[in-house]
Measured scan of single mutants.
Amino acid sequence: MGMPNRKYADGEVVMGRWPGSVLYYEVQVTSYDDASHLYTVKYKDGTELALKESDIRLQS
């Protein structure tokens, strides 16, 4: 078993793309699913969504 190939840690605050949009919002990573390679993130309004790594970026 190798290390999970994840870029962002639980609790890390990053920018997540809103689905169907080009806009990124501040989100907190809450979990990562090794099987689906999706991150569960929480937006400031409390919305929780699963995002692909390509829809997440570090805060500038």
Rank of each mutant, 00 (worst) to 15 (best):
M1D: 15
M1K: 01
M1Y: 03
M1P: 14
G2H: 11
G2C: 07
G2S: 08
G2D: 14
G2T: 11
G2W: 10
M3K: 14
M3G: 14
M3D: 13
M3F: 12
M3Q: 15
P4R: 02
P4E: 10
P4N: 11
P4L: 08
P4Y: 06
N5K: 08
N5D: 13
N5F: 10
R6D: 02
R6V: 03
R6L: 03
K7D: 03
K7F: 04
K7I: 10
K7S: 05
Y8G: 01
Y8H: 04
Y8L: 02
A9I: 06
A9C: 07
A9W: 08
A9F: 11
D10C: 05
D10Q: 06
D10W: 03
D10K: 05
G11F: 06
G11E: 03
G11H: 05
E12C: 07
V13L: 12
V13Q: 08
V13H: 10
V14A: 05
V14Q: 01
V14L: 06
V14W: 01
V14I: 04
M15F: 13
M15N: 05
M15D: 05
G16L: 09
G16K: 01
G16C: 12
R17Y: 03
R17T: 04
R17I: 07
R17C: 04
R17V: 05
R17K: 11
W18R: 10
W18V: 09
W18A: 09
P19G: 05
P19A: 04
P19Q: 05
P19D: 04
G20A: 05
G20R: 03
S21V: 04
S21T: 15
S21C: 07
S21Y: 04
V22R: 12
V22I: 13
V22M: 13
V22K: 14
V22N: 15
L23Q: 12
L23N: 12
L23H: 13
Y24R: 02
Y24W: 15
Y24E: 06
Y25K: 10
Y25N: 05
Y25D: 06
Y25I: 11
E26N: 05
E26S: 08
E26F: 07
E26Q: 11
V27D: 00
V27Q: 00
V27E: 00
Q28G: 02
V29G: 00
V29W: 01
V29D: 00
V29Q: 00
V29H: 00
T30W: 08
T30Q: 14
T30F: 08
T30A: 09
S31I: 02
S31F: 08
S31P: 00
S31N: 11
Y32V: 01
Y32R: 01
Y32H: 02
Y32Q: 00
D33G: 02
D33S: 08
D33A: 03
D33C: 06
D34V: 11
D34N: 11
A35Q: 13
A35Y: 12
A35S: 11
A35C: 09
A35D: 12
S36W: 06
S36V: 07
H37M: 14
H37F: 11
H37A: 14
H37E: 15
L38Y: 10
L38A: 06
Y39T: 01
Y39R: 00
Y39N: 01
Y39E: 00
T40H: 12
T40I: 13
T40S: 08
V41H: 01
V41R: 00
V41F: 01
K42D: 01
K42L: 12
K42A: 07
K42R: 13
K42S: 08
Y43K: 08
Y43T: 15
Y43P: 02
Y43N: 07
Y43A: 14
Y43I: 07
K44P: 11
K44M: 12
K44H: 12
K44W: 13
K44Y: 10
D45Y: 03
D45W: 08
D45V: 02
G46W: 03
G46K: 04
G46H: 05
T47Q: 10
T47K: 08
E48M: 14
E48I: 15
L49K: 08
L49R: 09
L49C: 08
A50W: 15
A50I: 15
A50D: 10
A50R: 15
A50P: 09
A50H: 15
L51A: 02
L51Y: 02
L51K: 00
L51D: 00
L51H: 01
L51F: 02
K52Q: 11
K52P: 14
K52S: 12
E53L: 04
E53H: 06
E53K: 02
E53Q: 05
E53V: 05
S54W: 08
S54K: 09
S54G: 11
S54Q: 11
S54R: 08
D55P: 00
D55I: 01
D55Y: 04
D55T: 02
D55M: 06
I56C: 02
I56F: 03
I56L: 12
I56Y: 00
I56A: 01
R57L: 11
R57S: 09
R57T: 11
L58W: 08
L58F: 09
L58G: 14
L58S: 15
L58M: 13
Q59C: 13
Q59R: 13
Q59K: 15
Q59N: 13
Q59D: 11
S60H: 13
S60V: 13
S60K: 05
